[in-house]
């Protein structure tokens, strides 16, 4: 199967300082889900931002290869990058409540994105955007288009963000802790959406600290610690036969939480 995104020896460092992320290599195939898991501060988000080329160039240096359909993003000019980012590779951010501009209507976010990559007029873009929201099973889409971010719930905004990420038919979507800020019900909705995205043949990079999310949707897993990959493999291998001590610890911590949850829920009954 075709590899959509391949990252080789990615290294990110603050100018003139020791690298924050090093030797990251990964690849994602069409319709597959790669999960990256690690504690906060392990460099997951930095890796995503480096792939998306949205790190501040004045403070960060990025080296290695980021191959999207075999073209190295790091070798492109800033202008070329901008035509790819948001179109062929799109992103779902961690906190939907702050990712949208509080002074801009949702509709404008959508039409701006469309118009940055196509030659649609504002009116046409508005139509396309509405249809895209409808595809996400959202109702009263024209109300949504006319709302300001603070008027919508986090779950709703997250679904809008997914709609935007799918709108320009990308070949890969990066989701950085996309479920963390949501309640359980909305998490479930989002994960279902992810399943749908994947079955439509889009590659997905899911960054999370939650093994539950990984277990539900990932095909392959990368475990990160202190800016490096400590273990990688299929989801089955990571769960059933982890090699590294760190991975085992992470898993144990997770199950401990589960047990406590379980015990507590019994008590409350």
């Amino acid at each position: 199967m075709e590899t959509v995104l391949a990252v080789n020896n990615l290294k990110v460092s603050l100018k003139n300082q020791a690298p924050l992320v090093k030797n990251i290599s990964l690849s994602i195939k069409k319709g597959k889900v790669l999960g990256i898991i690690g504690e906060s501060g392990s460099g997951k988000t930095l890796t995503c931002k480096a792939i998306m080329q949205i790190l501040n160039k004045r403070s960060f240096t990025v080296s290695g290869q980021i191959l999207l359909h075999n073209t190295d993003l790091l070798k492109m000019s800033e202008k070329q990058v901008r035509t790819v980012i948001g179109k062929d590779i799109s992103m779902i951010m961690q906190n939907p409540m702050t990712a949208f501009d509080p002074m801009m209507k949702i509709g404008r976010h959508i039409t701006d994105t469309l118009r940055a990559h196509t030659s649609l007029t504002r009116k046409q873009a508005h139509k396309v955007g509405q249809n895209q929201l409808k595809k996400m099973n959202l109702i009263r889409v024209s109300d949504i288009m006319n709302s300001y971010p603070h008027q919508l719930s986090g779950g709703m905004l997250q679904r809008v963000m997914i709609a935007i990420s799918l709108m320009l038919k990308p070949s890969i979507i990066i989701a950085d802790e996309a479920t963390t800020a949501l309640d359980v019900k909305n998490q479930a909705i989002i994960l279902t959406e992810f399943q749908r995205i994947r079955s439509s043949g889009v590659g997905l990079l899911v960054v999370t600290h939650d093994f539950g999310v990984i277990a539900k949707i990932a095909d392959d897993v990368l475990v990160m610690k202190d800016g490096e990959v400590v273990e990688s493999g299929t989801v089955y291998k990571i769960f059933h036969n982890p090699q590294e001590v760190y991975t085992k610890e992470l898993l144990q911590a997770r199950f401990l939480v589960d047990e406590v949850d379980h015990a507590l829920s019994k008590e409350s009954i």
């Binding site: 948001g86 799109s90 992103m91 994105t113 935007i164």
Partner: peptide
């Protein structure tokens, strides 16, 4: 701000 990063990630011109 997050919304600026998100705008960059959507490929909005600078």
């Amino acid at each position: 701000q997050d919304f600026v990063i998100y705008a960059q990630a959507r490929g909005i011109p600078k």
